[in-house]
């Protein structure tokens, strides 16, 4: 059965992830600390702004946005670039390429176990806590469905970007440099650390035409919009779908071309 081999990988991933109970504790502490810093920082910012609404967002809006962005980040970060880079350097990639599965898929499904655990252990609890604490500031309606669809596409875009950047490791040994550049660009331009609304005008418009905002900004804005207009939803999801397909083709194509080159040169 085709699905079964994927499920096996997922299951192995879950077992592996559970081996490390301490990492969960540390991760939760780490996120709490980050959120504490974020909370007080924005509180100070709103206090010195003197108004309740800055750039169209209230303090609550901003905080919910950032908390969920962090949860989303923990859920989506796959360290793919590291993984590919390390596999290339150690030569393990040769073995992986021999597996009866496309490397791109193999890597994704190997990691998917962590996806599942992360979703249930970090994103979902965070979401529930935020919903309860803010007394329903997070709308619970049709927007949840849009959000789920949007997240699935976000995961795909994020993975495509990671895989694309990871492929570059076939050409250079500088995994650290490659990875840090990707991470910095994605986090800043996707609105993961600062909501897009706070960016100054020409920059903000420019960011809408880049694929990065589809990763964090798009799903979060769909989630936090209690009264979604069909047109907004369609544009957002449409834009995501477009990037999803484009990045998928681009990363697949680049991998194919690179691999051929490497095989020929005997890298």
């Amino acid at each position: 059965m085709k699905l079964k081999k994927y499920i096996t990988l997922t299951r192995a991933g879950i077992i592996e992830a559970l081996q490390f109970r301490l990492s969960f504790v540390v991760m939760v502490i780490g996120n709490l600390l980050y959120l504490i810093v974020v909370y007080f920082l924005w509180k100070a910012i709103y206090a010195s702004a003197g108004t309740d609404v800055v750039n169209g967002m209230t303090f609550n809006d901003t905080l919910i946005y950032l908390v969920l962005a962090t949860a989303l980040f923990n859920f989506m970060e796959m360290y793919t670039v590291w993984e590919i880079g390390r596999n290339i350097q150690s030569g393990k990639i040769v073995l992986d390429l021999l597996k009866p599965m496309e490397y791109r898929k193999y890597l994704f499904w190997s990691y998917s176990g962590t996806f599942v655990t992360q979703f249930f252990l970090t994103f979902l609890p965070t979401f529930i806590v935020v919903s309860v604490v803010t007394h329903g500031a997070v709308p619970l309606g049709i927007n949840l469905l849009y959000f789920v669809i949007s997240v699935v596409m976000a995961v795909s875009i994020n993975y495509s970007i990671d895989f694309l950047v990871g492929t570059i490791c076939l050409y250079t040994e500088s995994i650290w440099g490659i990875n840090i550049m990707k991470q910095v660009i994605v986090l800043l331009l996707s609105g993961a650390t600062i909501p897009l609304a706070f960016f100054p005008e020409p920059l903000r418009s420019a960011m809408y035409y880049l694929p990065f905002q589809s990763i964090y900004n798009a799903p979060l804005s769909l989630l936090l919009d209690g009264d979604p207009q069909p047109q907004t939803v369609l544009t957002t999801l449409g834009m995501q779908a477009m990037w999803c397909i484009f990045m998928l083709l681009l990363s697949k194509g680049f991998w194919k071309v690179s691999l051929r080159q490497i095989t020929v040169n005997g890298g």
Binding site: T172, E173, S174, W176, G177, I178, I180, M181, V184, I185
Partner: peptide, 12 residues
């Protein structure tokens, strides 16, 4: 190459 890329990454 590694040196340059890492430095650029750091600057980024």
């Amino acid at each position: 190459a590694d040196f340059i890329i890492s430095t650029v990454g750091m600057i980024f």
